[in-house]
């Protein structure tokens, strides 16, 4: 079942085209990674989906209802965490969490307290004393304590430390287990790779790639740095090796993700001393996209 869908979504701000025929589709139970660099149009798309902005043309719908006309009906089943979480400086975190969950409708008190504990948030502090990360935690606790069918999260981890990112990932996995759907935007590819079933990549208002991670495998590659006891030879001619260059004591090798197994087998023969792999970044992926 399709939970969220945009069809040829266009948004213009004056002369500037922020979104140019964006097509997205999130199915029930899916975790969808919405990836793109800053200014690509992620927040704009999300705001149209929530009926905060009106599309110039095209269609946006959630649960089969129109994002603009049926906003309130849709919102009853959606939990949203904005990218920039601004709160009221003289309310406490606990008060804001209760306010948000009650405005949304269904929520669970025990889940709320459990989440506050997990995120290590002090709910008795006024929001003015919170850092960006803590404000994000307030919004995340309020979102996950609500009994929603769809979670829309706009770069939710940009202020969180790695430990809290783990907690966040656990929350997403819990939601998935309960059959909820998630739209998760990010400008860091590796961050969503672990969580998402599908990704859509947006740049300058256009979706340039979308599909399951497996389908996008052709775009990804792995960079490894390897030092071996024996001299490395003949690597260039191996299938799936895109490039080799000398660096320090060892070599930098670029491998197509599909062929990583074969290449590793060959490398092992040279007696590996040190092996480091670095995941591909969004920038590298764009470069690949331009090449291909």
């Amino acid at each position: 079942m399709v939970i969220l869908k945009t069809e040829d979504l266009v948004k213009k701000f004056g002369n500037f085209t922020a979104l140019d025929k964006v097509n997205l589709e999130v199915k029930s139970g899916e975790i969808y990674g919405f990836i793109g660099p800053n200014g690509a149009g992620k927040t704009t798309t999300i705001r149209i989906l929530l009926g905060i902005l009106k599309a110039t043309s095209g269609k946006a719908s959630i649960f089969g209802m129109d994002s603009w006309k049926d906003a309130v009906e849709i919102h009853k089943r959606v939990a949203y965490v904005p990218g920039e979480v601004n709160l009221w400086s003289n309310l406490t975190g606990g008060e804001v969490i209760d306010l948000f969950t009650s405005l949304r409708g269904k929520n669970s008190k025990t889940r709320r307290d459990e989440l506050i504990e997990m995120f290590g948030l002090d709910p008795s502090k006024k929001c003015r004393t919170y850092s960006k990360g803590n404000r994000q935690k307030v919004a995340l606790v309020a979102a996950f304590a609500s009994d929603a069918d769809l979670y829309i999260l706009d770069e939710p981890t940009s202020g969180l430390d790695p430990l809290m990112e783990k907690v966040f990932q656990k929350c997403i996995m819990d939601a998935k287990r309960e059959g909820k759907s998630v739209l998760l935007s990010s400008h860091i590819l590796s961050e969503v790779e672990k969580l998402c079933d599908k990704v859509g990549i947006i740049r300058q208002g256009k979706i340039i790639e979308s599909g399951s991670l497996k389908e996008l495998r052709h775009l990804t590659r792995t960079d490894i740095y390897v030092e071996t006891r024996q001299e490395l030879t003949g690597l260039e001619s191996l299938d799936g090796v895109l490039g080799v260059s000398k660096k320090d004591e060892g070599y930098l090798v670029q491998i197509e993700s599909e062929s990583i197994g074969n290449v590793m087998e060959s490398l092992a023969k040279f007696e590996i001393v040190l092996l480091e792999s670095t995941p591909i970044t969004l920038e590298e992926l764009f470069m690949r996209h331009n090449e291909g």
Binding site: W88, N90, L91, T92, G94, E95, V96, I97, D98, L99, S102, L103, P123, S124, K125, K126
Partner: peptide, 26 residues
């Protein structure tokens, strides 16, 4: 030391009207 605030919202604050009145209170 600043004294800790409420950890829970009162019933009053849990509605949009309550929010508006609360942020305009002072």
């Amino acid at each position: 030391a600043a004294k800790p605030g409420r950890t829970h919202a009162t019933r009053f604050l849990q509605s949009p009207l309550g929010l508006v009145m609360r942020i305009s209170r002072t």
